[in-house]
């Protein structure tokens, strides 16, 4: 295959698989800030396979396999054996609020004037699970139930993470706004 054909093939695979790879890497990585690097590593590996005429069958599953390997490579193999308790610290910090109803408009809790950079910086200070939940809820547009199934946690836990973090985000943005006004 010529270089041009390789590029075309690569772009095709990239378009078809980017979102699923992104979702996988976000769910597996330790920090959202690492996601871009890992995704790039994955697709560089994919490109190498293309130029060595490696036949890629079951493209999505194959590339997710590469992504898994790259995540482990990025963090070291200790990461694989590390027991990541989804309820880790959050178990003590977040109280389960079973009374939170599904139809609660979570978005209204966010301050209207939203500085995206500030929100991103704030989210990066939160735990990995909260970052994953936000990504899956806003970017992948999954429901709370789907998020719970993806991350193997309870729905209440997902709701609480969202609700509590958005409340904190709101207070954070209000403080930021007060500072800026001054």
């Amino acid at each position: 295959m010529t270089g041009q054909n390789n590029l075309e093939r690569f772009n095709e695979i990239y378009e078809n698989t980017y979102q699923s790879v992104l979702k996988y890497v976000v769910c597996k990585c330790a920090n959202l800030a690492d996601v871009n690097d890992i995704v790039q590593e994955v697709y560089i590996e994919v490109y190498k396979k293309i130029i060595t005429h490696h036949k890629i069958k079951h493209t999505n599953a194959y590339i997710i396999g590469i992504a898994r390997h790259k995540v482990y490579q990025y963090y070291g193999y200790l990461y694989r054996f590390k027991t990541i308790s989804l309820f880790g610290k959050e178990k003590d910090e977040i109280e389960l609020i079973d009374k939170l109803e599904d139809e609660t408009d979570i978005e209204r809790l966010v301050y209207d004037k939203c500085d995206l950079e500030s929100v991103w910086s704030y989210l990066n200070t939160k735990s990995t699970n909260i970052q994953r939940i936000f990504f899956l809820y806003y970017n992948s547009e999954l429901t709370i139930k789907e998020i719970a199934e993806t991350l193997h946690v309870g729905e209440s836990y997902v709701k609480n993470c969202l609700y509590r973090t958005l409340k904190e985000l709101k207070r954070f943005m209000e403080k930021e706004s007060d500072i800026n006004d001054k």
Partner: peptide, 10 residues
């Protein structure tokens, strides 16, 4: 806006 945030960052 939140979706745009993730779209920009990733």
């Amino acid at each position: 806006m939140m979706k745009k945030l993730f779209h920009d960052k990733l």
